[in-house]
Design a protein around this nucleic acid. Structure first.
Length: 481
RNA sequence: GCCGGUAUCGUCUAGAGGCCUAGGACGCCGCCCUCUCACGGCGGUAACCCGGGUUCGAAUCCCGGUACCGGUACCA
């Protein structure tokens, strides 16, 4: 039987790196086992679920290249894929449970429950539901209903027993159902509570493996009880470690970029983010780190997933992005950076493709994100607006303008203009004038690019072309105004 | 509080009783390359949470403690 897994977020925000991480592990498992990856929305929290968020999550997933085979927006044989559209399924299951006595109506209000819980805590008792609606008579229920109360449905827990969860990653984890209470499975608004909705859907959608964040490990006993009450076979559970911020707390806004959108907007490559996320809680057997999606799929085994939470590190993420940037063809690099290039008003679309490719090639090892690209190639399109003051102080001496003018003369008299020819000419000029090559090279870079750092000077000269190079050299050799 | 989980360099991790004088990667430092920066190469910095066992031998197994995370909601 082929595997089926799912990622089931609640659409209450943007796509978070934590969510992307578990979605990725599900996809990786599906792809590496030839199974299906399903996307379902658990939107039963009416107050917090939004359509905008649902769209944002889908867009984020697609941007990352984490395409789902079945589910929201794409459909499939087990739809609909939003819980709010699956009410009949929950009602049917709830009805069965109620009919068999495995579930019962509870008329306590959330406020009453909270009050009792608080009291229990103060008295040092475990804050569990006291079961007061467990054995209500029909008459009592009618009375409560007449008072305008609408009941929630609770699962009637079987007698306490030890219960072990078999987890592919954590191994056998023992719980005692005595720690549990009769929990709500259908809320008074008629929507399923989390544990109930998940079980009904996972069974109906034929999930073979449940791969989710380890914050759900403690919920698993409740779900197992539900599987049993409903007479369903258990799927295989695998809980993956969660991702924490640098302060070891759950990732949040104050940790910098944590929503996938932010990474996109800051010029990160989706394949780099995917690669980085894959390495949080998993590692390739051969220790390689820079991997394509397909390579990860090839090497991926749930058995190699670690048990401990991982702290997200932006430095390594940035390094990884730079690594992936170097793997891109020049034209791809430009296409990916289009947004930033256009925003910087660079006429890159009109440029000769071969030339543009060479320009990009010259700077690619000097940029870490797509957002760095415009600034890195700006001076190839127009003269620098200003010269780096520090560079001026260090490289411009009294005789420098004259040297630059001579350099321009030499370049103009070259029969064949190239990086190599320019370098020969420069070194000859330096020797003749009795100065170090660097004394001409550095000022040249400064007036050509406005800065003191960048690609090999002679490559810059070649890419700029003889005319433009000499124009900038001469402009700079003019007596200062 | 109770229940569950986790614990190797600052961070991500390798490690499943002797191969560990604990390996790799990011970061940081130094050197080399060199027209600068970056890349790259080389070298360095830095860890088995603590305490008890078990064993000839423990980062690896067991127990206790501690820390952190999660659950304990009509949130998911």
């Amino acid at each position: 039987m082929s595997t089926r897994v799912r990622w089931a977020p609640s659409p209450t925000g943007t796509l978070h790196v934590g969510g992307a991480h578990t979605a990725l592990f599900n996809l990786l498992f599906a792809r590496s086992t030839g199974g299906k990856f399903v996307l379902r929305f658990e939107d039963t929290d009416r107050a917090r679920s939004t359509e905008a968020s649902a769209r944002a999550i889908c867009d984020g997933l697609r941007w990352l290249g984490l395409q789902w085979d079945e589910g929201v927006e794409v459909g499939g044989p087990y739809g609909p894929y939003r819980q709010t559209e699956r009410l009949p399924h929950y009602q049917a299951a709830a009805g069965r449970l109620q009919a068999s006595g495995a579930a019962y109506e509870c008329f306590c209000t959330p406020e009453e429950l909270e009050t009792r819980r608080e009291q229990a805590r103060q008295e040092g008792r475990p804050p569990k539901y006291d079961g007061r609606c467990r054995d209500l008579s029909d008459a009592q229920r009618s009375t409560l209903r007449a008072q305008g109360r609408t009941p929630a449905l609770r699962l009637r827990l079987p007698p306490p027993e030890p219960l072990v969860v078999h987890d592919l990653i954590y191994g056998d984890v023992e719980f005692d159902t005595a720690e549990l209470d009769d929990f709500v499975i259908v809320k008074s608004d008629g929507l399923p509570a989390y544990n109930f909705g998940v079980v009904v859907d996972d069974v109906h959608m034929a999930m073979t493996h449940i791969i989710r964040g380890d914050e759900h490990l403690s919920n698993t006993p409740k779900q197992i009880l539900l599987y049993r009450a409903l007479g369903y076979d258990l799927p295989i559970f695998a809980h993956v470690p969660m991702i924490l911020g640098p302060d070891r707390h759950k990732l949040s806004k104050r940790h910098g970029a944590t929503s996938v959108d932010e990474f996109r907007d800051r010029g990160f490559l989706p394949e780099a983010l995917v690669n980085y996320l894959a390495l949080l809680g998993w590692s390739a057997p051969d220790g390689r780190e820079i991997l394509s999606f397909n390579e990860i799929v090839q090497a991926f085994r749930l058995e190699r997933v670690s048990k401990s939470a991982a702290v997200y590190d932006e430095d390594k993420m940035t390094w990884m992005n730079a690594q992936h940037l170097r793997l891109l063809a020049p034209a791809d690099l430009c296409a990916r950076a289009a947004t930033w290039l256009d925003a910087a008003d660079l006429p890159w679309r009109q440029a000769d493709p071969a030339w543009l490719g060479a320009v990009v090639e010259a700077v690619r090892e000097r940029v870490r994100t797509l957002a760095d690209l415009p600034d890195a190639i700006h001076y190839f399109f127009q003269p620098p607006a200003a010269l780096d003051p520090d560079g001026v102080r260090r490289h411009m001496r009294d005789g420098t303008p004259a040297l630059l003018a001579m350099a321009a003369d030499r370049l103009e008299s070259l029969t064949a203009f190239s990086a190599e020819a320019a370098e020969v000419a420069y070194r000859a000029l330096a020797e003749e004038r009795g100065v170090k090559p660097a004394d001409i090279i550095h000022p040249t870079r400064l007036v050509l690019t406005g800065r003191t750092v960048g690609p090999s000077l002679f490559l810059v000269v070649q890419l700029l072309g003889r005319d433009e190079t000499c124009r900038r050299l001469r402009a700079a050799s003019l007596p200062a105004a």
